[in-house]
């Protein structure tokens, strides 16, 4: 990784951490506050691509592991990794990577804006919702012994919110791509 890639990943990790420290933001059209940290994970993939986005999330997880309370609500420390919801947390790493990989593959600057937004949305959906929730449910089911069905039922409540975040990530990703393009492009 070049020094610039390293710095981009570190700055994005700082953004993800900061998003956990600010108060929840209200959505415009429905009165629901959203915690922006998992949005940050999708954004890392959409904006930085697989490798750098994944590294950004890895840095956040390392900060959690070394005892910094960087997750929303001031959570952190090794205990977070043995919590029933640890699968979602570790899943972030794969979520960012998959989102980034798909974004690099299917979105480029020459496309029309609708195609770009749709591409980013599907990438964020695949990484941030499918991959992350699959890992989250799997660990919840295995770690607590409740069985997949029970775990999945509990998980369902969080899916609409994350789909919404994937949509926000898609719009934000496209806006950043126009303002400051960073996503590695295929030759």
């Amino acid at each position: 990784m070049s020094t610039r890639d390293l710095v981009l990943a570190a700055l994005f990790a700082a953004i993800i951490v900061a998003l956990g420290l600010v108060p929840p933001i209200m959505l415009g059209f429905i009165p629901v506050p959203i915690t922006a940290q998992s949005l940050g994970v999708m954004l890392a993939g959409v904006i930085l691509g697989a490798k750098r986005g994944g590294f950004a999330v890895l840095l956040v997880l390392l900060l959690v592991a070394i005892g910094l309370p960087v997750l929303s609500g001031g959570r952190g420390g090794l205990a977070t990794f043995v919590s029933p919801t640890a699968g979602y947390l570790v899943g972030w790493l794969f979520a960012a990577y998959v989102t980034g990989y798909l974004s690099e593959r299917f979105v480029d600057r020459s496309q029309s804006s609708i195609v770009q937004i749709a591409g980013f949305f599907l990438a964020a959906l695949a990484g941030g919702v499918v991959v992350d929730h699959a890992l989250g449910v799997a660990y919840l089911a295995w770690g607590t012994g409740t069985g997949l069905m029970t775990a999945f039922m509990g998980d369902l409540a969080f899916i609409p919110g994350d789909v919404l975040k994937a949509l926000i990530a898609a719009f934000a990703g496209r806006a950043v791509m126009i303002g400051y393009p960073l996503l590695p492009q295929r030759a």
């Binding site: 700055l11 994005f12 953004i15 209200m26 806006a175 950043v176 400051y180």
Partner: peptide, 23 residues
Amino acid sequence: KPRPLTLAVPLIILTLRNADEIA
């Protein structure tokens, strides 16, 4: 009114712009 999109986009661009100089 602050919205996720209008907050996140400038935040990300302004922050990542420093990357070149830091690197």
